[in-house]
Nucleic acid binder design. Structure first.
Lengths: 195, 195
DNA sequence: GACAATGTGTTGCCTAAGCAACTTTTAACT
DNA sequence: AGTTAAAAGTTGCTTAGGCAACACATTGTC
């Protein structure tokens, strides 16, 4: 039951997600109760459970959606893992993490972990899907492609996260200059003469 | 059917009114269809009719609510028709008319008439209810009080509307200086030495 | 004036949402 | 440890909202 096409369902889910995002901006994740969410969304508490298992599932979906909406067309449609695409992914990841940590109170350990995992997974998936479009020649079998994607995603994510502790957080060109050569060399795709 | 207490009903009515106010800001009243409203409110067209007879009834309610929310506490609780209260009513009426004509496209004759009538009626009612609280001594019987209220409301409204065509629309002190003495004298309540 | 196209209301059937009244966790206090 | 309170989930029944399909009015255009 609960037909995902029903306009009432779409509206209710929008209301819940909007309420949640709003609450995250002024309360810690752990401090937010289902009752809070239901109240702000002007829905019944029981209705919440018809749509989400719990607030973790909600967080998962909100995170996914936010990241997804952030992906530029260029990256989503990319058929080849070029320098430009690589740069975009690095910047997007960095921007996303920054946004999240700035607008939400990441007081909750559980939340930070969940969000991190989610983003990493999406990043990885995005990269893998570009690799699989096949224009870029890497290892032959899907297995090695998966591993390459995993490494690339993890590297980008790790670097972006690490950059949070750097003095010049906003000097993203510094980040890009470090990560791109590393990744592209690792993949054996580096072109520019340097290094 | 349709219990006005049901949270779904409250929410739906809010959505409809918000959608309508929004549409009024960019479309003429006549150009707005029920379909437009339903779409923007993310409800079904049939649901609209469960709450409002037509868009005229909706306009009526939106107008009433907007005017009502504009009434200062001081005026709502007034037990006597003083100079200050009189001034407040004049300014409020002027402000309301100005707002309405500025934010909405008053292209429709029917709409302008309806809104005008509505505001006048509410203004009149507000004044009457102050008179009836009785601290102000006017004629004895309710009948004459009603007439006094009607005259006062009409005078204030007429003046405020007329002021729209004056060069210095925003010089509201000019408006007040003309209307207050007129009304207070008419009611036999004027105190200040002047005139 | 015939025609299509679009908006207005209405109706019956189905589904999502609200509610009350539970049980079960979880957490805080003493 | 024992008590209490608040939050988390669950369930059966009721009601508002969505939809399709209708009849009817309005408009424009050929």
């Amino acid at each position: 039951m609960v037909n995902q096409e029903d306009p009432r369902v779409l509206r209710t889910r929008q209301l819940i997600k909007a309420a949640f995002r709003d609450l995250l901006r002024r309360k810690g994740f752990d401090a937010i109760t289902i009752k809070d969410i239901a109240q702000k969304a002007t829905i019944n508490r029981a209705t919440f459970y018809a749509h989400f298992e719990d607030k973790y599932a909600l967080l998962d979906e909100v995170t996914e959606q936010a990241f997804h909406e952030m992906i530029p067309e260029q990256v989503a449609n990319a058929r080849e893992f070029t320098d430009e695409i690589c740069d975009q992914l690095i910047l997007q990841t960095h921007r996303y993490i920054l946004d999240f940590y700035q607008t939400c109170r990441m007081d909750s350990k559980s939340m930070a972990t969940l969000v991190d995992e989610k983003i990493k997974k999406m990043l990885l998936h995005t990269i893998e899907s570009i690799f699989l479009k096949g224009a870029t020649h890497l290892g032959v079998n899907r297995h090695s492609i998966k591993v390459m994607a995993a490494m690339t995603g993890s590297a980008i994510y790790g670097a972006a996260q690490c950059w949070l502790n750097v003095e010049e957080i906003d000097r993203t060109d510094g980040l890009v200059d470090i990560v791109r050569p590393y990744v592209m060399n690792g993949l054996g795709l580096y072109r520019d003469g340097d290094k």
